[in-house]
Amino acid sequence: MDALTDILNTLRLSSSFYFRTELTSPWGVEVPAKEKVARFHVVIRGQCWLRVDGEEEGIHLSNGDLVVIPHGASHQLADTTTTDIRPLEDVLDEVSYVGSGPLVYGGDGPGCCLVCGEFAFSDLGQHPLLENLPRTLFVPGNQSYNSQWLDSAIGFISHEASNLEPGAHAIIDRLSEIMLIQVIRATLDASEEKIPFLSAFVDARINQVLAAIHADPANDWSVENLGQLVNMSRSSFSSCFTELTSMTPLQYVIFVRLEKASRLLIETTIPLINVADSIGYRSEAAFSQAFKKQYGMRPGEFRRAHTEKAA
């Protein structure tokens, strides 16, 4: 399994479609902030403006454009930059929208059709990749991709959202996951600036090291032997890895080990000493101390808390 796939599994992604819109000018909607989600909007027809809280400038969106808001920030969508904005909750109440079919709203002017959704992350979903993503990921509809998967995914989501045939929501969930991966790939291809952690996948050497760590986190990794994997000196490798990921190599090894442990504690009944051994800790005490530092509680407490929550 490659590192990016394993990281997305770490985030425990569960996408959920919420609605397709048919909006006619004049219209303006404010979508509230929401934690542990990444929201997306795809323009199927027409044009609109997006402004994300914390960003100085708005983004003009037109046919085929896709925007992802990775951190669930509050944002506004409107037909023009001067249209009055109304809270989404008020709009839903006004049109008596109950969650099925398209959201139809606005005046008598030109129309805009959007497919909107969100990627929800579990309470444990955390990773430097997600934390360091820009506030907005914008993929223009006219951008060429190394693969046609993104265009295809958007097209299928639009079709399923429009028809809502049996099984549509399950299909949309899977396609949304594919779309998020493709957005990350498109961002990697198009970005001219270094984005913490995301840029690590562009560097062939650091990407190879990430893959090795994720494939075998229990290995007795050191800065020296990780650097040797890619024929780099200890100092050069450490400097390059830290610059691209904002973590030292051993900090990242520990992070991956403990994330794997958290999954084992929730999903299995393996004794704590065996969990510790499976991720490279020979001492249960050392494992417990490291785990508490990352998750705020000891492994046994963590397992009990999530067992009670599941019950």
Rank of each mutant, 00 (worst) to 15 (best):
I157Q: 12
R234V: 00
R263N: 12
Q126T: 14
G46T: 13
S246I: 00
V183M: 07
E94G: 00
S158Q: 11
R45I: 02
D2M: 00
P217Y: 04
D216C: 03
P70F: 06
H71K: 09
G125W: 02
H169L: 12
N146Y: 10
A33G: 13
W149Q: 14
T10V: 06
V98C: 03
T268S: 13
L66D: 13
E192F: 06
E259C: 03
F255D: 15
E259K: 09
D79W: 00
R86Y: 01
A218L: 01
D93G: 06
L11S: 13
S74Y: 01
A38G: 15
T136A: 13
R185K: 13
A186C: 10
I279E: 03
G167R: 08
A261R: 03
R185D: 15
S176I: 05
A305N: 12
G106D: 10
P299L: 04
L13A: 12
G107L: 00
G141C: 05
P128K: 09
S262I: 01
T136P: 07
R205F: 06
Q228H: 09
F197H: 10
S162V: 00
S238H: 10
C240S: 15
Y281R: 08
F241T: 07
R298E: 12
A311L: 09
D65W: 09
F19Y: 14
A170T: 11
L258S: 13
R304W: 05
I181G: 14
G101T: 11
E131L: 08
G64A: 11
T24Q: 07
D189T: 08
S100P: 00
G111H: 07
S162P: 00
H169G: 06
F302Q: 06
H214E: 14
L250W: 03
N9L: 05
I184N: 02
I279V: 15
E57M: 02
E308T: 03
T21Y: 05
D108G: 04
I154E: 10
L11Y: 07
E22M: 04
S191L: 04
P196V: 02
T245M: 09
F255V: 04
F156M: 11
T248C: 02
